[in-house]
C-alpha cells in the first residue's frame, strides 16, 4: 500500500531501528525548527527535525532542493540561529556554547568557500591559526594536509587558478585543520567530474577510517549508497525516512511486495512522494 508522502517511516518494519547509546552520539537534534520571516510571511524551512548520529558513522542526509538539508546543517554547525529545539555535537549544545562546538566540528559547505586571492598554503595556515595553532604548528599542519589531499605541488599557487576538484579537496583540508571529531560536508561533490568525485569519496573514507564522524548531505543517491552507514531523508522540513540503505530498501520491498530490492532512488522517490517525471521537470526555489 502506498504510504502518505511526508509520513515518517522507520527503516525496519519488524523491529525498531537500533538505538545508539547516548554517550556515543556525535550529533543529536531534537525538535529542530527554523522559521524565516519573509515579505510573504513566515516560512517554515525546518519543521521539527530529530536526528541521532553515532560516533564514527558516515551519516547521509538526503532531500530534494529546498527540503531543509542545508538549513539543518547550518543550524548544527552554528552558522544559523535555531528557532526552537535543541542541537548538540559531541554532547555540546551548539547554541549555548558555539565556540566549543566549533572546535569539535569541521565544515565544508556547498560551493567550496575559499579565498581566491590566497594560496592554498596561506589559506590552511590562516585557518589553523584561527583555531589556535602557533605559526610553526599551523605551517606543519598545512603541509600535512596538503600532502593528505595531494595538493603539495599547487600549494603556493593562488586558489583562483585551481580546478573545481582541487578547490573541493582544499576545502576539505581546511575543514580538517583542527582534527575535528565531526565533519559536516554539504554536497561536497556537486558539480565535480566523475574522477574528482571519486577522489573526494576516497578522502572521505580515509578521514572516516581515522575515526572522524562524517555528516554528509548529497543529492547523489549513488554517493549515499556507496558511502553512508545510515541515512535520513528530509522533505518539507521533516525527516521522512531514516535507517541504513539496506534497511530502507528492504522496508520498501516488503511494503510494496517487490521481488527484488528497489534502488535508493526508488526509496527517495517513495519517501518524498515524487515521480521521476515530476523530478525531471521540477524547479523549486532553494531557500537555504
Amino acid at each position: 500500500m502506498p504510504r502518505e508522502p511526508g509520513s515518517k517511516v522507520s527503516a525496519t518494519v519488524e523491529s525498531p531501528p537500533p538505538t545508539i547509546p547516548a554517550m556515543e552520539l556525535a550529533v543529536e537534534a531534537e525538535g529542530l525548527v527554523k522559521q524565516y520571516r519573509g515579505r510573504g510571511g513566515t516560512v517554515d524551512a525546518v519543521r521539527g527535525v530529530d536526528l541521532r548520529v553515532g560516533v564514527g558513522e558516515v551519516f547521509g542526509f538526503l532531500g530534494p532542493n529546498g527540503a531543509g538539508k542545508s538549513t539543518t546543517v547550518r543550524m548544527l554547525t552554528t552558522l544559523m540561529s535555531v528557532t526552537s529545539g535543541t542541537a548538540r555535537v559531541t554532547g555540546i549544545d551548539v547554541m549555548a556554547d558555539p565556540d566549543a562546538a566549533r572546535r569539535r566540528i569541521g565544515v565544508a559547505l556547498q560551493e567550496a568557500g575559499l579565498d581566491p586571492r590566497q594560496t592554498g598554503r596561506e589559506l590552511l595556515v590562516l585557518q589553523a591559526r584561527l583555531f589556535g595553532s602557533s605559526a610553526a604548528q599551523a605551517a606543519a599542519r598545512a603541509q600535512d594536509l596538503l600532502e593528505l589531499v595531494d595538493l603539495v605541488d599547487a600549494a603556493d599557487r593562488r586558489i583562483k587558478g585551481y580546478s573545481g576538484g582541487m578547490k573541493r579537496r582544499l576545502d576539505l583540508a581546511s575543514a580538517l585543520v583542527h582534527e575535528p571529531e565531526v565533519l559536516f560536508l554539504d554536497e561536497p561533490t556537486t558539480g565535480l567530474d566523475p574522477a574528482s568525485r571519486l577522489t573526494v569519496w576516497e578522502e572521505m573514507r580515509r578521514i572516516n577510517a581515522r575515526g572522524t564522524t562524517v555528516f554528509l548531505t548529497t543529492q547523489y543517491l549513488e554517493e549515499a549508497d556507496q558511502l553512508c552507514d545510515r541515512l535520513a531523508i528530509i522533505d518539507g522540513g521533516l525527516i521522512v525516512r531514516e535507517g541504513t540503505p539496506a534497511e530502507l530498501k528492504a522496508e520498501l520491498r516488503q511494503r510494496r511486495g517487490l521481488h527484488v530490492d528497489p534502488t535508493l532512488d526508488e526509496v527517495f522517490l517513495d519517501a518524498t512522494g515524487r515521480t521521476r517525471e515530476r523530478l525531471a521537470g521540477e524547479v523549486r526555489e532553494v531557500s537555504a
Binding site: 554547525t77 559547505l109 556547498q110 568557500g113 575559499l114 585557518q127 583555531f131
Partner: peptide, 15 residues
Amino acid sequence: DIEGGYFDKLRAAPV
C-alpha cells in the same frame, strides 16, 4: 567573501 562562502568558513571557526 560572503558571496563566495569564505565568510561562512571564517564564521565556522572559534573566532
